[in-house]
């Protein structure tokens, strides 16, 4: 656009005889635009096509699955693979467990992280800077360093093969979310809280009645990240859960694949579709919070 405008000015100055040169420039410009679109479309296909493939594999017939070249639009639609998969493994049970853990993690992380972020935003007391630096430093610590001692502690508490190791830590805050929320809280004028304090509002009242209602977008961002992490987490359930009845969907799906002697691709893909579906739904309803969340932390980090 800018270049076009510049070109416009130039062509006006240069006069009529350069008109043909100008249209050649326009044609080149059009060609470039089309080329960029072609690249973007190829890119989008590369990203999206695997998921299209996931869905159509889950409804193809056995005969159609193993032909060459593969059919891009399935000739048969066999929905019974979903029923078979549900019968083969307790997928709904797994999804129920994952939902239960997601809800507990959401409650824990929203309460604890917002309280802590409020503390770090509102009170500048001796030591608060050092503690905030310590908080940022924990984001660098790989989970694998603390994984083994934590396992030993939770085992000593008798928490192995219970849900507790998978949700109790959420109530003790999460450094990434505290950082994200503090970034957001800092943008809310502190005069609001000073005024409320003079009006006799308690400290907790300022947090609950002023900060939280004003921070819904940031809290939504926290919630969708936590949802995604709990729903997708594999390593922690792998370490802590043994019983069939307590498996999460991530662990259960992996188990389903590993337990098959001959791989039933349609059933596996059907189970995968069921695991992916909630994530896709959340994305489509709340996608702007995903993008904003990254901008809020990624850029200022």
């Amino acid at each position: 656009m800018e270049a076009n405008r510049t070109a416009d000015v130039q062509s006006n100055v240069a006069g009529q005889e350069q008109r043909s040169q100008f249209s050649a420039y326009r044609a080149l410009r059009l060609l470039e635009t089309s080329l960029v679109h072609v690249i973007l479309v190829i890119g989008a296909l590369a990203f999206i096509f695997p998921f299209y493939w996931l869905i159509i594999t889950s409804i193809k017939s056995n005969a159609e699955l193993f032909i060459w070249p593969p059919t891009l639009i399935p000739r048969t639609v066999e929905l019974f693979h979903y029923g078979d998969a549900l019968q083969e493994v307790p997928i709904l049970r797994y999804m129920g467990n994952s939902t239960y853990l997601t809800v507990l993690n959401l409650i824990g992380v929203l309460i604890s992280s917002s309280l802590v972020a409020f503390g770090f935003t509102r009170y500048h007391v001796p030591g608060s800077r050092i503690l905030f630096a310590a908080l940022l430093a924990t984001m660098m610590l790989p989970h694998h360093v603390t994984m083994i001692p934590l396992f030993l502690v939770f085992r000593a508490l008798g928490w192995v093969d219970t849900f507790r190791p998978l949700w109790v830590p959420a109530f003790l805050g999460n450094a990434f979310f505290i950082f994200l929320l503090r970034q957001f809280f800092a943008s809310i004028p502190s005069e609001l809280f000073d005024a409320a304090r003079i009006d006799g509002s308690s400290e907790f009242g300022q947090y609950w009645r002023i900060m939280l209602p004003l921070s819904k977008p940031a809290l939504t961002t926290v919630a969708i990240f936590q949802f995604q992490w709990t729903w997708n987490d594999f390593l922690n359930p792998l370490i802590y859960i043994n019983s069939q009845s307590k498996k999460t969907i991530a662990l259960g799906l992996q188990d389903f694949y590993k337990s098959q002697t001959t791989v039933e691709w349609q059933q596996l893909m059907a189970a995968s579709v069921l695991m992916v579906a909630p994530v896709v739904l959340v994305f489509f309803f709340l996608q702007r919070y995903f993008i904003e969340g990254i901008a809020l932390t990624g850029l200022k980090g």
Partner: peptide, 21 residues
């Protein structure tokens, strides 16, 4: 959306999909 969405997909489901791909 097209470029972003694969990155939020559950890694277990994506892994199983890619075994097939």
């Amino acid at each position: 959306s097209a470029y972003y969405i694969p990155s939020i997909m559950p890694i277990v489901a994506v892994s199983i999909l890619w075994i097939w791909l």
